[in-house]
Amino acid sequence: MNLTLDQYINGFERTARELPELLGRWESIDHELREEYAEQLAWLLESRSEVHALAERASRGVEIAMRTALATAAIFSMRAALAQAMNLPSEAIVDVAVPAAPASGEDISCASDADVSCRAMAA
């Protein structure tokens, strides 16, 4: 990735903020742009693990993990609309590997997909 952590996380947060409005007028958006948006969202989600690793090395692990968790939770709340508009499965939103917790870290268990915010926050 040739982007900075800030370019990634600011874009991820902006995406979470703007998606409700975009989904509200999805059918009126040009086909090429809709494909772009679907691909870009998939890329943001797929890149979380790489970004978390980069953030750890930049001593910003906790901050970036918290911010991606909040944005992920917001996006997860739109999962039904995203599945319909972009064919995006819920698994693509919640499936994120995170760095191992420190030995002294608190064990946070999540029971189901509905606990996505909890699971992501555990990062």
Partner: peptide, 18 residues
């Protein structure tokens, strides 16, 4: 087709400054 960056990147990372 030409569009402003804001429209291209409405979903995705921030490319401003690149």
């Amino acid at each position: 087709e030409s569009r402003p960056l804001a429209e291209w990147q409405a979903v995705g990372p921030d490319f401003v400054g690149r």
